[in-house]
């Protein structure tokens, strides 16, 4: 089966100070996503998760450009598309849900208008058909009495409702892929759970594939089939959620899993020492080596290659094969 999305060797660079300085926000990452599958993209802030997503939808800021690699979506090469062609893909086949539901709706337009826009521009729907469509979309994201609420403005709705409206907008074009960039970070915990359930239900009903960007591993365990762990613009470990939670091979993944709070646990919470590296001045060798508890001299001089294991599991670490997962980081109840 050909995957729905195939990203291979993607490199996205930011140029600053008139081209004198290049920041490799995304530095040669590869992953695939099948129809109806959910991939979790994890990492600390500034590791290139959002830049990866914006590269896929073709909405990079002006200082950034795709310096290499391919993004193949449904058999089409997205890096070669013109902005006009990308616009057509964005409204229909690929949708994205942004982080902040309070800021992602236009305060001056009614909910109806904002949800209707994709159908208006892409499917040329008008009048009663359009109203019907908007009501269906709002009902699909469980907005109560959609016919009334669609006349409201964003400020009249709670954060959770607004994020569901954003979900309705994402669904409007009937997408094959939804990129959800930390969609629940700004929601209350109970609302988060509802929202995640909603996304799961939508996925079951429509078979849409989801890329879930987050730094919350609990969400990954709950939502995703596979996960890719990013560090300093690279994917350091990639595999099924079950495998990684049961015994991650990369020290960084293990450290992340060790820093989850667990109910009833008396062990102190693990904290990764140091700061995420400055992407403009990366350490030599493996970028994680200054913070790595398992580093050996080789780690600071040579960059580890990607090593493949069963089940599509890949790891980039010199110590990966030598060191099986340590018990204290392990989390079996995924």
């Amino acid at each position: 089966m050909t995957p729905l999305l195939e990203v291979s060797g993607l490199r996205t660079h930011f140029t600053s100070f008139g081209g004198t300085r290049i920041v490799k926000a995304v530095d040669g990452i590869s992953f695939t996503l099948n129809e109806g599958e959910t991939l979790g993209l994890i990492g600390e802030s500034g590791c290139g998760k959002t830049t990866t997503c914006l590269s896929i939808v073709g909405l990079l800021p002006t200082a950034a450009r795709i310096a290499g690699g391919r993004i193949t979506f449904g058999g089409q090469e997205l890096t070669e598309k013109t902005s006009r062609e990308m616009r057509r893909i964005r409204g229909r086949s690929i949708a994205m849900i942004l982080q902040d539901p309070m800021a992602s709706l236009n305060p001056l337009f009614s909910i109806y208008r904002q949800v209707a826009e994709p159908a208006y521009y892409h499917q040329a729907m008008r009048g009663r058909t359009l109203r019907r469509r908007v009501q269906d979309l709002l009902a699909a994201v469980r907005i109560p009495s959609p016919a009334q609420r669609m006349r409201d403005y964003p400020h009249q709705m709670s954060g959770g409702m607004r994020q569901r409206i954003v979900g309705a907008i994402a669904l409007a074009g009937g997408p094959k892929l939804i990129i959800a960039d930390e969609p629940t970070t700004n929601l209350d915990v109970t609302i988060q759970a509802q929202y995640l359930d909603l996304l799961k239900d939508i996925q079951r009903d429509t078979g849409v594939a989801i890329i879930f960007v987050t730094h919350n591993l609990g969400i990954v365990a709950r939502m995703c089939d596979r996960m890719a762990v990013m560090y300093a613009g690279k994917i350091v470990e990639h595999g099924s959620v079950r495998n990684l939670f049961n015994g991650a091979r990369h020290p960084y993944t293990r450290a992340l899993l060790g820093s989850i709070t667990r109910l009833g646990s008396k062990e102190p919470l693990y904290a990764i020492p140091g700061q995420p590296p400055n992407l403009a001045r990366l350490p030599s060798g493996c970028a994680f080596h200054p913070r790595c508890p398992d580093a050996v001299p080789r780690c600071s001089t040579e960059e580890p290659p990607e090593e493949g294991f069963d089940d599509g599991w890949t790891v980039s670490c010199w110590r990966a094969a030598a060191e099986p997962a340590r018990k204290e980081y392990d989390r079996t109840s995924a």
Partner: peptide, 24 residues
């Protein structure tokens, strides 16, 4: 962010700038 979302909807540049942005 709402301009980013308007772009994500795949709206024509004119609609993003003249309608969503200018009114604000």
């Amino acid at each position: 962010e709402y301009i980013k979302l308007a772009r994500l909807k795949g709206l024509p540049a004119f609609a993003v700038i003249a309608v969503h942005a200018f009114k604000n």
